[in-house]
Nucleic acid binder design. Structure first.
Length: 718
DNA sequence: AGGACGGCTAC
DNA sequence: GTTTGTAGCCGTCCT
């Protein structure tokens, strides 16, 4: 026991150690690693006092280090690995032939039943397989998966049933369709939604709630290495080979090989990670962004609303199951409009949403921010499309569309950055007018013009400087013999970061380029006055200020990935994206035309019948006066009793004939309009909206310049 | 050539 | 509740 207490002194506070851990019965002890503190609480309330002899619990907060891609130094300083090593008494480099030297004989992974939970399990498997592979190869499984139910159904009289997969639940529902509705269904979203009683039930029958991870051979190690190792090419290949996996994993047996886990389950996290990190080609939206837009339209977000309120509404309306703080951050990014961010922001930023001082990291807390949809949102996402889209469902409830079809590829206006698994993406921002022009060329089967990245209000230059490489340049000019003024920074270089760069140029020991820097705010942006010796200035001028002062930044088009029909597609130019995009948009107009024509036809038929009825009444063909309503209805073949709500005069008839003429005209207009001309109408609306905001912007800038002059002038006279 | 870092949605 | 550290990829910058 002496060794036991000695060890305990340095054990982490958050550990609930098994009483027998580290003693002579340590081999019979199990350490439960939980995903988050709330799962730890569930485990603690589920374990009986007796079980606490042999079960310890330790919560993991956040993601576990991918040791396979980490440096030894990073592994050494990692808090979780330090804790785990102490708790289990692990020794690095040791080849284990049994677990007798450890404080616990096995480890249970208790992660949420969702994609990120699977990822957590994967990272833990990866950790052991990389640092202590011998443990995973022991004949008796060292790692155990804790499997909690995903769905529970209860009945007034019958015994409750649980399912650990959606597929099992669906099969159960199909088997007895008639009575399925008598049951109430509970979906567990993470371990946090299990009750204390359910926790006790899990541990009371722990054997049916676990499955063993099994090491069969080298193929297991290879699978883990592909999923977590440093070769993204292998990972891409793995995703391509396994993305057909049923997104509803089947029933879980009591054993699974590491290879099966990686290829059938971990790959689902990979796909989810791509969905949330890489936008679709069609709407340029990541899944979270799509849920935000959907909610804003659904609740008609036309009044300024606090961000914390709005983000809660997103959770409710779109079944967003992650942290609300995350949504708020995404909304903030979508609303930002400083130079270098969105060319066409859909949300209005009201409050401190961040500035180009730090790339928007200086945004205020969500509680102090308000937002609403900008009018342009309805122009880019026409309401008339709503009936033509496909929608995601959750447990039968209609959620956001699987993808929107804005009238132009939004991803080219606002760009995209994202890091998924196997793939990342970077798409620059382009001028909406260039994009519209190329769509028009595409429709007319003309060659498209190559586009150069464009950022709203950016006053520097952007030029093509290589294959798939564009360079954005800042701006500077001479003020006097020893001063250069820098007034514009290249795209993506934030003023706070540039300060550091200038200070480094000044601190450069030996012969620094810069003697001094002073920073001024000219009203709308920062200006740097750089003071340097005449000699250095001459030299810098010869070599080029932009290069010398590090005012060049590349924008590449070599990593443009977008999702299309669940698959990742690599694009090599923005024009290629437009080529993929507009045929789908045109198809939507064809559908819209068909639907509108159908609706108009039925309205016209109704009008014609009403008119005929009124004519008949007025000519005396149908007698109305002195008869029962039911008799008249019987006489009418159409049987439409609503006719009697009409005023039975010829005036009414003339009114309806006018209406009919209008509808016929609409049909005429619709028949003469093509998908192309309907598209053109929508594009024109967007263009006029662009002009409006450009006018507004230039007026704003004019006012800023004036107020700036007023504040500067008195200083000059002093 | 090799390591560190920025960008972004998640735990 | 907020802050910090982590995943994941690729291009850039620094050593």
């Amino acid at each position: 026991m002496a060794g036991n207490t000695e060890g305990r002194e340095v054990l982490p506070d958050k550990l609930e150690d098994a009483r027998q851990a580290g003693g002579k019965n340590s081999n019979r002890c199990t350490l439960i690693l939980t995903e988050g503190d709330s799962s730890k609480a569930l485990a603690m309330s589920g374990l009986t006092s007796d079980m606490r002899d042999f079960y310890g619990v330790y919560p993991i907060t956040g993601k576990v280090l991918n040791v396979r891609k980490a440096s030894p130094a990073q592994i050494n300083r990692n808090k979780f690995i330090q804790d785990l090593t102490k708790i289990l008494k692990l020794e690095l480099q040791k080849e284990y032939t049994d677990t007798s030297s450890l404080r616990y004989g096995r480890v249970i992974l208790m992660t949420d039943q969702d994609d990120d939970g699977t990822h957590m399990s994967g990272l833990l498997i990866n950790l052991f397989s990389f640092l202590w592979p011998s443990l995973l190869k022991l004949p008796s499984s060292f790692l155990i998966d804790f499997v909690t139910p995903l769905i529970k159904v209860t009945h007034e009289t019958k015994e409750a049933e649980t399912f650990s997969s959606l597929r099992e639940f669906k099969e159960w529902k199909e088997k007895d369709k008639a009575h399925a509705t008598e049951w109430s269904v509970k979906f567990y979203k993470g371990l946090g939604s299990s009750t204390v009683e359910e926790g006790m039930l899990y541990f009371n029958q722990i054997d049916i709630h676990v499955r063993e991870f099994v090491w069969e051979g080298d193929a297991d190690g290879e699978a883990i290495n592909i999923a977590f190792g440093g070769d993204p090419e292998k990972r891409k290949e793995w995703i391509r080979n396994n993305n057909q996996v049923d997104s509803l994993p089947g029933p879980r047996g009591n054993k699974i090989t590491y290879k099966e886990f990686v290829n059938n389950e971990l790959v689902l996290f990979t796909i989810a990670n791509l969905q949330r990190s890489i936008p679709t080609m069609f709407d340029g939206l990541k899944s979270g962004e799509r849920k935000i837009i959907f909610t804003a339209f659904k609740i008609d977000l036309t009044e300024l609303t606090p961000l914390d309120v709005f983000s809660s509404l997103v959770s409710q309306h779109s079944a967003y199951h992650h942290s609300r703080k995350c949504i708020s951050n995404v909304i903030i990014r979508m609303a930002q409009d400083f130079i270098g961010r969105n060319n066409v922001n859909l949300f209005e930023p009201s409050g401190q949403f961040g500035t180009s001082a730090s790339g928007g990291k200086d945004a205020a807390n969500e509680g102090y921010l308000h937002t609403k949809l900008k009018p342009v949102a309805w122009v880019l996402f026409p309401k008339a499309d709503d009936d033509l889209l496909e929608y995601n469902l959750e447990y039968g409830r209609k959620l956001e569309p699987t993808r929107y079809f804005p009238i132009i590829p939004l991803v080219l206006l606002n760009g995209a950055k994202g890091i998924g698994s196997g793939f990342s993406t970077f798409i620059p921002q382009y001028n909406p007018r260039d994009v519209i022009a190329n769509i028009r060329r595409g429709i007319k089967c003309e060659e498209m013009e190559p586009m150069v990245p464009w950022y709203r209000d950016f006053e520097g230059e952007i030029k093509k400087t290589g294959e798939g490489v564009y360079t954005s340049y800042g701006k500077c000019h001479d003020v006097n013999d020893n001063t250069v003024q820098i007034s514009v920074l290249p795209i993506g270089l934030w003023t706070d970061d540039y300060k550091k760069i200038l200070h480094a140029l000044k601190a450069n020991n030996g012969d620094p380029l810069i003697e001094d820097v002073s920073i001024h705010n000219d009203g709308s942006s920062m200006v740097f006055n750089v003071i340097l010796s005449k000699k250095h200035k001459k030299e810098a001028r010869r070599e080029g200020y932009l290069k010398k002062f590090k005012l060049e930044k590349n924008i590449t088009t070599t990593n443009m990935h977008l999702l299309m029909g669940g698959l990742i597609k690599k694009y090599h130019s923005p024009e290629e994206i437009i080529k993929d995009f507009y045929p789908h948009r045109l198809e939507l107009y064809v559908k819209r035309k068909g639907k509108t024509a159908l609706a108009l036809t039925s309205e016209i038929v109704k009008l014609q019948r009403k008119i005929q009825f009124l004519k008949d009444v007025n000519r005396g063909v149908i007698l109305v006066v002195g008869r029962l309503e039911s008799e008249i209805i019987k006489e009418l073949k159409s049987g439409d009793e609503k006719f009697l709500e009409l005023s039975l005069t010829m005036d009414q008839c003339i009114e309806l004939e006018k209406e009919l003429a209008e509808k016929n005209q609409e049909v005429g207009h619709l028949n003469s309009s093509s998908a192309e001309s309907m598209y053109e109408e929508d594009l024109k609306k967007f263009e006029s909206m662009l002009s409006e905001s450009e006018d507004l912007n230039s007026r704003k800038r004019g006012m800023m310049a004036m107020s700036c002059q007023r504040t500067v002038k008195p200083k000059k006279t002093q």
